[in-house]
C-alpha cells in the first residue's frame, strides 16, 4: 500500500521535475558571476584554480561557516557515541591478511604524502584542503585496517583540529587588521602559477586540510571503537 502511494507520488513528482528541467538548458553559460570569476579570478586573487579562489577568497566567509558546521557535526557525532559500550567480539579481531598488512604499511606514508601534496597545491591544480584532508583520512583508515588495536591519541587530534580552526580565524582577523575586511588577502599575490603565490589562499587551505583530515580521522577512529575502553571503566 505504502509502496503504491510512494510510486504514485514519485511519478507525479518526476513529471513535475521533467517540466521544470525542460526550462534549464544544458551546456549553456548561465550566470554572470561565474563569468566574472573566470575572467578576473587570476588577477584578483593570484590563484590559478578558480574554484579555490571562489572557495577561499570570494566566498571565504561561507567556507568558515562550512568548517564550523563540519566541526559541530563531528562534535555531535562524538557526543552521541561518547558512552558507547565496547562489544565483546571486538576484543578478538581477526588479524589482517599478509597482503593487506604489508600493502597498507607500504602505502600509508605515500597516501599521506599525496594528501599533503593535494592541499598544498590547492591553488595551482585540482584539489585543495577538503580533498587533501579526505585523502589523509583515508590513509589513516588504511592504517587502522591493518592495526585495529592501535590506539591513537584523541587529545592530539582535538588539539590539532582546534588549533587549525583557530588559525583560520586568526588569518581572517589579520586580514581585518592589515587589509580592509575579514579574510582580506593581505599577503602579496606573487606570480600566478608559482607555488608560493596567491597570498593567504595556500595558507588557509593548509589549515583546512589539517582540520578536515583530523576531523574525518576522528570520526573513523571513534567508529572503529578503539578509544572507548577508557570511558567504559
Amino acid at each position: 500500500m505504502k509502496k503504491i502511494i510512494a510510486i504514485l507520488f514519485l511519478l507525479v513528482l518526476s513529471y513535475g521535475i521533467y517540466l521544470s528541467i525542460n526550462s534549464i538548458p544544458f551546456g549553456v553559460s548561465k550566470t554572470k558571476v561565474g563569468n566574472y570569476y573566470n575572467l578576473n579570478g587570476v588577477k584578483d586573487t593570484g590563484a590559478n584554480n578558480i574554484v579555490t579562489a571562489v572557495v577561499l577568497n570570494y566566498r571565504g566567509f561561507d567556507t568558515l561557516g562550512e568548517v564550523t558546521v563540519l566541526f559541530l557535526a563531528v562534535l555531535g557525532f562524538s557526543t552521541i557515541l561518547f558512552t558507547m559500550k565496547k562489544k565483546k567480539s571486538d576484543n578478538m579481531p581477526t588479524p589482517p591478511s599478509l597482503i593487506l598488512s604489508i600493502g597498507c604499511k607500504f602505502l600509508f606514508p605515500f597516501v599521506l604524502l599525496f594528501g599533503i601534496y593535494i592541499f598544498i597545491h590547492g591553488h595551482l591544480s585540482p584539489g585543495g584542503g577538503f580533498q587533501g584532508g579526505a585523502v589523509i583520512a583515508s590513509a589513516f583508515l588504511l592504517f587502522y585496517l591493518v592495526k585495529p588495536s592501535e590506539k591513537s591519541s584523541k587529545k592530539s587530534f582535538q588539539l590539532i583540529e582546534s588549533l587549525s580552526g583557530m588559525a583560520f580565524i586568526v588569518i581572517g582577523i589579520l586580514g581585518l587588521v592589515f587589509g580592509n575586511y575579514f579574510l582580506s588577502n593581505f599577503l602579496p599575490k606573487g606570480i600566478a602559477g608559482k607555488l608560493i603565490s596567491a597570498g593567504i589562499i595556500p595558507l588557509i587551505y593548509i589549515f583546512i586540510g589539517i582540520k578536515v583530515g583530523s576531523e574525518l580521522t576522528g570520526i573513523i577512529d571513534r567508529l572503529m571503537g578503539k578509544n572507548n575502553e577508557k570511558q567504559v571503566k
Partner: peptide, 22 residues
Amino acid sequence: APDVAMAEASIGAALVTALFVL
C-alpha cells in the same frame, strides 16, 4: 569539475562507504 571529482572520489566513494561498513 576535477576538484569536485576528487572530493567525491575520496569522500563519497571511499570514506562514506567505510563509515557505513563500520
